[in-house]
Write a protein that binds this DNA or RNA. Structure first.
Length: 921
DNA sequence: AAGTCGACGTAC
DNA sequence: GACGTACGTCGACTTC
């Protein structure tokens, strides 16, 4: 059988250029790529093929350019050092006797594809020599692929599968999904070989993937759906043609005569000593560097990919704005006049940090009319930056405007800006509207509430992303170094879009009186309260935390040594994956719990379940507990202490939880341990400074009380009115005991039922929680509902309302829309029902404590020197108080908290006082 | 190097 | 499939 070798010359040239060090010959001419190609050609010759072709791209456009004008548009021009090697390469190729093909209007890939298929049909044995993975689509009986640079060979379905995880006939789909940056063919964002192969494994073909795109979850699913329209084109672009018209067939490609003298000359000129020696009859090992190292070559610049246009919902609101940069005093005065005259103005600040307690103010932007905005740069500092208005003086000029409560201001997540301005000497009053909170109150559950998302969702407007002006990752520059025109486009847009969003959302709120009230009476007044809590911060005993870290480390090490001994080898205790292999594969312990993805779980429940069969699980549990405390708390909290204030300042996210709860980050101070002794010790590090005390006030059983109120169940209401321990009272009711006869176990069961019900728990869940049979759990629940029929009715009512209206609401009218209550899978609907039951209770509790915070803060306004509100933990407020002021604060705080809502049961507030947070409980 | 996901565990 | 709402850390994996 005759053999044909088709060499992808362009691919080798590029790859050799980039893979090999920048070599030069004695005359300084670049030779690196040439050297690589020559080595490849010589190794091809050793196989003595009957037919061979060295194929190069021609210069002109091809059918792919017609199909997709941006094809290869990103490609930088060929570097000069490489261009210089093309002509010598052609000379060497021809001197060696290789037929050289370069067909105008057809890419080398398609020439190779066509010849390969023709030859295979004629019964030839074809080898394509290339560094380009795209050719894997041509592998079939009679056509193999080799890459002489990596030495790999693909000649069967199996070898392609091994390399890419897909069959040769799937390669085109595979490439279409991934796209090709070099050729400027965008695929699915974040979809690389692994993801593409995974999908093709599941769905088989690109068409099937596209049809099933809605079923793919997560970020990557979104990316896939966004890329859908262009995938068929991608497929066409990456498909190698096998039917182009060529002048000669494979049988015209016999090796030509070799021109030894020309070769000798060329090898000598470029310093290929080994090749030269070989030419004269000596055997030469390949792959040894034959030229002297030369100077480094320059790198080509890659231009940025073009941004994609998005369609507008409303042309007026999604049109680009006209923005101005304020650099002159006269401009500033004109804008101040405009702001003064406006009914309400939007503003935004630009800074050097995401941390509002550290951020340095770089500029401010303003807008009073949609589409018109100005950026006032105050601290841009880069070579060639224009002179800017003096920051201190300018802020002084603006301060009266910000301080005037009568001048209404609007922002997006303005709490951040309030912090920054306050830290630069500007107090803001009259912060009247916030587009993030408008969106949150209008529909807390649907999507994010950041400005980029809102602009897109509400206005169909695609904002300039921070990364576009400041870069990201290692290349990110501080905003102060962003060029003024970029900064203006970005910053002024923020103010402009904020105003536009308000124009859209305010009428929507006004149309719903209940929501308007939640927004106006709860969320907006809370903004400055949260800002003040965050600014206050909490004092942390760093030395205490360090001591605890050291102690935990010691005990972790002991547990680790013990674990290594028990396992008989060392392993990473922090890795669930390694743990799983050890426990269930090596030690053959039974798998009793699985993770949601079906893997054997190593969580606490799973380890407890096998703790009686081996000593190791117990030791792992010990280690886990210690590691959690150290890594999350005792090691990290000291790093969070603010250098200027010496305190820890959390951030509360007001639009964080769909139910209306706050959440806390950087650090999260709402999940400091309390249940175990080791964990609780961490609370001792949250301290009051000398002369002060920490006071903690928490609502007693607030969610259960709300359940009593909402259900109006006489039994439950009575239990709370009597002031009894509600879990004990429940146990007495459910188990038919006198209050004093209730056992500890019965109380525990009753407590589990009480909590479980609020979360929509089933008999299955309760059984698991209590470690009892499912039937028994069902009996408990039935008994519970017979004693508290109002609760059962309330829950059914709530489900019903959710299904009919699509949302549930709190006592104060806050809504939670439930997308899946009437659609989706059974599991999704069941989940939505549980959320529907829980949200009115959790949400009402959130409303109540927010109202309390507002009224307590109002009272505290006159006592700022004596007491500070410093933490909120869902049902608890923590204060730092002068020791002699404690009684006054206790009286006021508990009183105002109790009075924050009038329910049909009393709102009881417990409190404690201590030198640290642990003592205050 | 950076982003994402899953597993795990802390709080209420 | 089975208990609601959050956030942080870690390892593993993937992309760039």
């Amino acid at each position: 059988m005759s053999r044909l070798v088709l060499i992808d010359g362009s691919s080798y040239l590029f790859r050799a250029f980039h893979a090999l060090p920048p070599l030069t010959n004695a005359a300084g001419e670049p030779t690196g790529a040439l050297f690589g190609v020559v080595n490849m050609l010589r190794s091809t010759l050793k196989d003595k093929p009957d037919y061979v072709a060295f194929v190069l791209d021609a210069s002109g456009p091809t059918f792919r350019d017609a199909m997709y004008p941006q094809y290869k548009a990103n490609r930088p021009p060929m570097p000069e050092e490489l261009r210089a090697q093309v002509q010598p390469m052609r000379q060497i190729v021809e001197a060696l006797g290789f037929p050289l093909l370069c067909v105008e209007g057809v890419e080398a890939d398609d020439v190779i594809g066509t010849l390969a298929v023709q030859a295979a049909q004629q019964g030839m044995d074809v080898t394509i020599s290339t560094g380009d993975k795209d050719f894997a689509q041509l592998v079939r009986p009679g056509i193999a692929l080799i890459n002489t640079m990596s030495g790999s060979r693909m000649d069967s379905v199996e070898t392609v599968m091994e390399k890419f995880g897909v069959r040769p006939d799937q390669i085109v789909d595979f490439l279409a999904l991934m796209g090709d940056t070099v050729d400027n063919v965008p695929g699915v964002e974040k979809c690389g070989p692994k993801t593409a192969a995974k999908w093709l494994g599941e769905y088989g073909t690109l068409d099937a993937i596209m049809a099933g795109a809605d079923g793919i979850k997560g970020k990557i699913g979104e990316n896939l759906r966004a890329a859908l329209p262009r995938l068929p084109l991608n497929r066409d672009l990456v498909t190698i043609k096998t039917d182009v018209a060529l002048e000669g067939g494979p049988d015209t490609l016999a090796m030509r005569e070799r021109h030894v003298e020309q070769l000798r000359e060329l090898y000598a000129r470029y310093g290929f000593h080994q090749a030269l020696k070989e030419l004269d009859g000596g055997a030469a090992p390949a792959g040894v560097a034959e030229t002297e190292p030369g100077r480094a070559r320059g790198t080509g610049r890659v231009s940025a990919p073009s941004s994609r246009a998005t369609e507008a919902v409303d042309p007026a609101l999604s049109a680009p704005g006209e923005y101005e940069t304020i650099l002159e005093p006269a401009q500033l005065l004109a804008w101040i006049a405009r702001l003064q005259a406006a009914d309400e103005f939007a503003f935004d600040s630009e800074t050097n940090s995401l941390d509002p307690m550290q951020a340095d103010l770089v500029g401010l932007s303003f807008s009073v009319e949609p589409g018109k905005a100005a950026y006032l740069p105050l601290a841009h500092d880069y070579p060639g930056a224009p002179a800017q208005l003096d920051r201190r003086l300018t802020l002084q000029q603006l301060a009266p405007l910000f301080a005037d409560a009568g001048k209404k201001k609007l922002g997006q997540h303005g709490k951040y800006d309030l912090h920054v301005l306050r830290r630069h000497g500007v107090d803001v009053h009259g912060y009247r509207d916030d587009t993030m909170l408008e969106s949150f109150v209008l529909n807390s559950g649907s999507g994010r509430h950041d400005m980029d998302s809102l602009a897109k969702r509400c206005l169909g407007y695609e904002t300039i992303k921070y990364e576009q002006v400041a870069g990201k990752g290692a290349k990110q520059i501080p905003f102060s170094q962003v060029a003024l025109d970029d900064a203006t486009r970005y910053a002024a847009e923020d103010a402009d879009i904020t105003l536009r969003l308000h124009r859209v959302q305010a009428p929507r709120l006004a149309a719903e009186a209940g929501l308007e009230q939640v927004y106006r009476d709860i969320e907006m007044p809370l903004v400055p309260v949260l800002a003040s809590i965050e600014a206050n911060g909490v004092s942390v005993d760093v030395d205490e935390l360090r001591r605890q870290s050291a102690d935990l480390s010691k005990r972790m090490l002991a547990a680790q040594q013990q674990a290594t001994e028990l396992a008989g080898r060392s392993f990473n205790l922090d890795s669930p994956k390694q743990l799983q292999a050890l426990l269930f594969d090596e030690l053959k312990l039974p798998v009793l719990v699985k993770t949601p993805t079906g893997q054997p779980s190593t969580n606490e429940e799973a380890l407890e379940a096998i703790a009686d069969q081996h000593e190791l699980p117990r030791v792992i549990l010990e280690y886990r507990g210690l590691a959690k405390l150290r890594s999350t708390y005792t090691d990290k909290l000291p790093d969070m202490v603010n250098a200027q204030t010496g305190r820890v300042h959390t951030s509360y996210h007001q639009a964080g939880a769909a139910t209306g709860r706050l959440s806390s980050t950087d650090p999260n101070l709402q999940n400091i341990p309390i249940r175990t002794d080791d964990g609780r010790r961490i609370r001792r590090a949250f301290i009051a400074p000398p002369g002060r005390k920490l006071v903690a006030c928490d609502y007693s059983q607030i969610e259960l009380r709300i359940m009593a109120h909402l259900s109006e169940d006489p039994g439950l209401v009575r239990a709370f009115e009597s002031g009894a321990d509600v879990h004990k009272a429940t146990a007495a009711e459910v188990f038919g005991r006198k209050l004093e006869d209730v056992t500890g176990n019965e109380r525990r069961a009753a407590k589990a039922i009480n909590f479980g019900l609020m979360y929509g728990m089933s008999a299955f869940g309760l059984a698991r929680q209590l470690g009892i049979a499912r039937g028994e759990a069902q009996d408990y629940i039935a008994l519970y509902f017979s004693r508290y029929p109002g609760v059962r009715d309330f829950m059914e009512r709530t489900r019903q309302q959710a299904r009919e209206r699509g949302y549930v609401e709190t006592v104060f009218g806050r809504r939670l829309y439930l997308e899946y209550i009437n659609q989706g899978t059974q599991a999704q609907r069941a989940g939505a029902e549980r959320a529907a039951i829980n949200a009115p209770m959790q949400g009402t509790a959130a409303d109540i404590i927010k109202r309390a915070m507002i009224s307590v803060d109002a009272w505290l306004a006159d006592h700022r020197e004596r007491a500070l509100m410093i933490l909120q933990v869902h049902d608890e407020l923590v204060f730092e108080v002068d020791a002699d002021f404690v009684p006054t604060l206790l009286d006021q705080a508990t009183g105002l908290m109790s009075a924050a809502a009038q329910l049909s049961v009393p709102l009881v507030v417990d409190s404690g006082v201590g030198q640290n947070w642990d003592e205050a409980h």
